[in-house]
Design a protein around this nucleic acid. Structure first.
Lengths: 358, 358
DNA sequence: TTGTACGCGTTATCAA
DNA sequence: TTGATAACGCGTACAA
């Protein structure tokens, strides 16, 4: 890699390095004729300023960092790529580099995190997969390094973030399911330590309250993984007044429900309605395709990057927090209860409970 | 962001900048006592050398670039994330930054590509989605910028690449399907301009030849997209001697076949066997789960990065090209032909053709 | 064993 | 309008 520097251009043009620099950076104190010649020579020599020298001088990296959580076994990981695509688009638009680290994002003392932060390779960070009491938040705050979080913790929210409005999305789904006539709706969730789980569950409770439905704790299961869905579902269906519909707060949980239901000989949606959060390809390709609330991860990425870059430009701007409302897509996995005898029976029982509850 | 430089450490330790530099970089001409004190001060001050200054002086970026094709609507894109994860892992291990560009990777004159190359932000590049006569290859070659391609073109292969062995994988699937007793096996592919399509199709032909089966052009369809699979399948099944099995060279084509078959009232695998290339989550979650050849994209990413970094370290090392053999996973979408009357009838017809062919 | 001086490529300051 | 000079933070001959 032969590299042509500003000196080469200066020599070739018979000018000083200073003049060349100013000519190329559009300073207004350089003669137009001179600027033209400089440009010509620069083009001829195929000159491009070194990012390093420039950054060293200006103490700005012109780059942002992104830590991708390595939960690469999860089905919804696909959305990450769209998210990255969105970030990349914004970065390209604003002439900023995107540095990606795949090291454990929660290890604040680890290599991946430190590289980016300490060696000043980036002007800011997009941090993902925010947990309760996430160590990165106070760390970055103290270092005064601009950052935007993708996702919210629960307790402390005094930082810029962008997130899907989990409560709103869940309420949309619930309104749809309740509107179909369901009264006993189970909630299947992952560990509540995940910030998104907290908000989605809050939406579930709020929807029940709004519809004046009984909020039966027996219908709620937290801390589930792909493996524990089947037993949980069997458990729920063994209740004296089993649910007629299931809401899964993540797509992979919903797919597990689908498999478990099939294993139990239940038809979706005839015997059991199913709706999920996250409208992924897997959800769309399921049989039947699942009713889901989804959002554009690409858009989310674009916004996250924009938020961060604005913050870098002007660190004192008021705290920016953005919630994106997801969209409900009704598909074939939800139907009115009581399409079959099982459903019918279940529903009657549920209604009794419902009335008892009031 | 307050930044502590080597000067601060020197001042605090009462030493010269040089000594501090050498102490921290493990030079052997510095007293152990001095080194200890320097380390102490550096830690106390939380000093970390600036990546920019270091790179400027050494003319090495300590970073590699990756262009992610923005074909983000394709179902198999999921694997990209694993690929990135693999690259990231190798980078972290070797203390190298990963710069990701999502701009159009094929636009050699575009921003995304130029940023990385011209401003010398990276020491090398991983280029993906290689096409026939890909403009990036000669460009990078001329610039003498080290690179590794993910995927192969067809004509010119005089550059380092890493790829899945498409021919081998397809032959594995074909051997399995032929072993089940199928004689009329359709081939569904995307545009042959995609390098991988060329090799996978070659594997198909080779497998037929090896089994001394008739290579009937009527069974082969190139240039398919998600939409055109259904008509193609209908077309194939309307042949006088229709196929009893279908091989799809990409997962999303296979899923489309599954849907189309269902729409036609055909059961997989009873009426039609189906096998695909690319063992993605979509394939695994399909109903029935599809027989597929797959590979670890993470592993591929790790290898690509390793190949590139080695090449950067020693540009004159012999051309490294690595083909990863995929693994066949037999699932429920393939079965012997003739399980049903339709299958039976079809098979008999096929056998006649088979004999005619010999 | 330590310090001085210089260079990496660029922009900013100030004088001409 | 242009150019000489310093500075950014670091590494490294070379001298002490």
């Amino acid at each position: 890699m032969v590299m042509v520097t500003i000196k080469d251009v200066a020599r070739q043009a018979g000018l000083s390095v200073t003049t060349v620099s100013r000519a190329l950076n559009n300073y207004d104190d350089v003669a137009e004729a001179t600027r033209a010649r400089v440009r010509e020579v620069a083009t001829a020599l195929d000159y491009h300023p070194s990012a390093f020298a420039r950054n060293l001088q200006g103490s700005v990296a012109n780059a942002i960092g992104l830590g991708i959580p390595n939960v690469l076994h999860r089905s919804y990981d696909m959305s990450w790529l769209e998210f990255i695509g969105g970030i990349g688009a914004t970065c390209a638009e604003r002439d900023v580099d995107l540095l990606v680290s795949t090291a454990d994002v929660h290890d604040v003392d680890g290599q991946g995190f430190q590289r980016l932060v300490r060696e000043r390779r980036v002007d800011g960070l997009i941090v993902c997969d925010i947990r309760r009491d996430d160590a990165r938040i106070p760390y970055l705050r103290e270092r005064r390094l601009p950052f935007v979080a993708y996702g919210r913790a629960v307790d402390d929210l005094a930082y810029p973030f962008i997130d899907v409005d989990g409560a709103d999305g869940t309420m949309q789904v619930m309104a749809h399911v309740i509107g179909l006539g369901h009264r006993r709706i189970a909630y299947l969730g992952v560990d509540l330590a995940f910030g998104f789980s907290h908000y989605r569950f809050a939406g579930y409770s709020a929807a029940l309250r709004r519809a004046r439905l009984c909020d039966d704790p027996a219908l709620v299961r937290h801390g589930l993984g792909e493996q524990s869905v089947a037993p949980a579902l069997a458990d729920l269906l063994a209740l004296p007044d089993p649910p007629t519909a299931v809401f899964a707060e993540a797509d992979f949980l919903g797919l597990a429900v689908l498999r478990a239901a099939r294993a139990l000989g239940l038809a979706v949606p005839d015997d059991l309605s199913l709706a999920v959060f996250d409208d992924s390809l897997l959800v769309q390709h399921a049989d039947p395709p699942l009713t889901a609330v989804g959002h554009s991860n690409r858009r989310l990425g674009e916004d996250a990057a924009a938020l961060l870059l604005d913050r870098i430009t002007d660190p004192d701007r008021p705290l920016a927090q953005r919630l994106v409302a997801p969209t409900l897509v009704v598909r074939q996995s939800t139907a009115p209860p009581g399409n079959t005898q099982l459903g019918q029976g279940v529903d009657n029982a549920a209604l009794q409970v419902y009335h008892r509850c009031k």
